[in-house]
Design a protein around this nucleic acid. Structure first.
Lengths: 229, 229
DNA sequence: CGATCAATGCGTATGAGATACGCTATTTAG
DNA sequence: CTAAATAGCGTATCTCATACGCATTGATCG
C-alpha cells in the first residue's frame, strides 16, 4: 500500500439518481472490518470472511472499496473519526503529552492498527483533522507551524514505538529476553543479562515506560523551544 | 510472526555425521533472500522466487528454514551480523547518537527491514550483540543498566519512526500532503495547509529532520540523567 | 565391501486469499 | 414503457505457502 490513494479519500463519491440503490455502504463495510480486526485480529480480515459477516457476496465489496489494501487504510483512518481528545491544559507540554497519549490510547484499543500506522500509507481526512486540531492548539501557544509539526512527529514516533511492547501481550520484556535463561547463551551477552535480571533493578519497569519515556521526549522538545525564544 | 522462535535462533543445529550432506545452507538462503529484498523489495521474496535464484526446488528450502515468517526474521537479524559501528566518543550523548544513527543507516540500506523491525518478533543473536555492545559502553560511563536500556529504546523508537519518511521515497512530505493542493479540501485543514506551504517556513525541512529530532530526544535523556545524579 | 540408516532434495497436491470478468437484478430518467 | 446506469455476485484464475511422501546420497557398521 502507499501511493495513489488520492481518489480513495478525496475522490468524488457522489451518486447520480439513476441505477440500483446500494445495499452496502463503504462505511458499513469498513466498520464491520474494524469489528473483525478488533475481535479476531487483522489477519482474520479477509474479503471472504468480511462478506460472510455482512451477508453479501465477496465481489460485492469491490463496488465500494477498490481492494483489500485500501480497505485496511480506510479502517485505520476510521479510528480517528472521533475528534481528538481535549488536552488537560493549553500549554505546550500538555498539548504534546495529550497527542502522545491519544495515539497510544487509539493503538491499545485497536492493536492491529499499529502495523497499519507504521506502514507506508497516505493520510486520510480523519487523521488530517487530528493533526490539524493539534497544530491549531500549538499555534495558539505561539509555536511556529513547522516546528510544531516536527514536535508532533517526534512525539508520534516515540508513541508508535513505545506502544508496541504494551500491545504484544505475550511479548513482555520477560518473553523478549527468554533466551537469557540459558546460561550458555546469556554469558555471550553479559550486560543484557544483567539489565534483564528480574528484581535487580528498581524503577522504571521495562514494559511500561511509556509515560516515563514520553516525558523525556517532551522535555527535550520543551527545552529546545524555550531556548529558541 | 512473533513467539516461540526460541528454537529458530537458539536451538541445536548440529548435524550428526550420518545422512546426505546439505547442498543448501541456512546462511546462503538467508543471504540470497536479503539480496532479493534489497533489489526488488520484500514482497518479491517468495519461496518460489528464492528457490529459482538458488537453483533448488521450493520445498528444499524448508529443510533449512521452518517457514516464510521465520525466514524474514532471520533476514532481519542477519543485517546486524556486522558489529555495531564505533561511536565517535564514549560520552553518553555520543553513544546514544551513535545508536540512533546505526539503526537509521541499517534501515536506509535495507528499506524492507523497517516493517520487520516494527513487527512483533523475537530477538536474534546479532541484534542481541548490538544491544549488548551499547549497554556495555553505557555501563562504562556509569549508566545504570535498566535506565540505559530505556534510553536505548527511546532512541530506537524515534529512529524507527523518523526513518520511515526518508525511506518512502515517493512519500516525501510533498506527497504526503498532496491532498492539500485542492482548495476545497485544504480549507478544511487550515493549519495543516499553512504548515505544509512550500517555502513559507525556513528550517528545518520536514522530510529530513532525523538529526534534528534525534538531538532533541537525546537532549531530554541527557538532562534527565544528569539531574538524577 | 555391502547393507543400513539418517538426513537432504524436491515433485505434487492442497488450500487460502485476492481479484478480473461478465451476467443479472434493480432502480430511475425520459 | 424502454433505456441507461449502477449494484450484487458466481465463477474462474493466479499467487503463495506449505504438508506429504518418495527418491537420493553419503556415512557408518557389521
Amino acid at each position: 500500500m502507499g501511493q495513489g490513494e488520492y481518489e480513495l479519500f478525496w475522490g468524488d463519491r457522489s451518486r447520480p439518481g439513476r441505477g440500483r440503490p446500494p445495499g452496502l455502504s463503504r462505511e458499513g463495510i469498513v466498520a464491520e472490518a474494524v469489528a473483525i480486526a478488533d475481535a479476531e485480529g487483522l489477519q482474520k480480515v479477509s474479503m471472504k470472511h468480511l462478506a460472510e459477516r455482512l451477508g453479501s457476496g465477496v465481489m460485492s465489496l469491490y463496488r465500494h472499496v477498490p481492494g483489500k489494501d485500501e480497505l485496511v487504510i480506510l479502517m485505520y483512518d476510521s479510528l480517528m473519526a472521533e475528534p481528538l481528545p481535549e488536552p488537560e491544559a493549553d500549554t505546550l507540554r500538555d498539548l504534546l503529552l495529550a497527542w502522545g497519549r491519544a495515539v497510544k490510547d487509539m493503538l491499545t484499543a485497536h492493536p492491529w492498527a499499529l502495523k497499519v500506522a507504521t506502514s507506508h500509507r497516505s493520510m486520510g481526512p480523519n487523521e488530517a483533522a487530528w493533526l490539524d486540531a493539534t497544530l491549531a492548539r500549538l499555534d495558539a501557544v505561539d509555536m511556529p507551524p513547522r516546528l510544531a509539526m516536527i514536535a508532533i512527529l517526534t512525539v508520534d514516533y516515540f508513541a508508535l514505538g513505545a506502544v508496541r511492547p504494551e500491545i504484544g501481550g505475550s511479548e513482555s520484556s520477560e518473553e523478549l529476553f527468554r533466551f537469557l535463561a540459558d546460561p550458555a547463551v546469556n554469558s555471550r551477552f553479559p550486560h543484557l543479562a544483567r539489565m534483564a535480571a528480574p528484581g535487580s533493578q528498581p524503577e522504571p519497569p521495562l514494559d511500561d515506560h511509556f509515560e516515563f519515556g514520553l516525558g523525556l521526549v517532551v522535555d527535550g522538545l520543551e527545552r529546545y523551544i524555550e531556548s529558541a525564544r
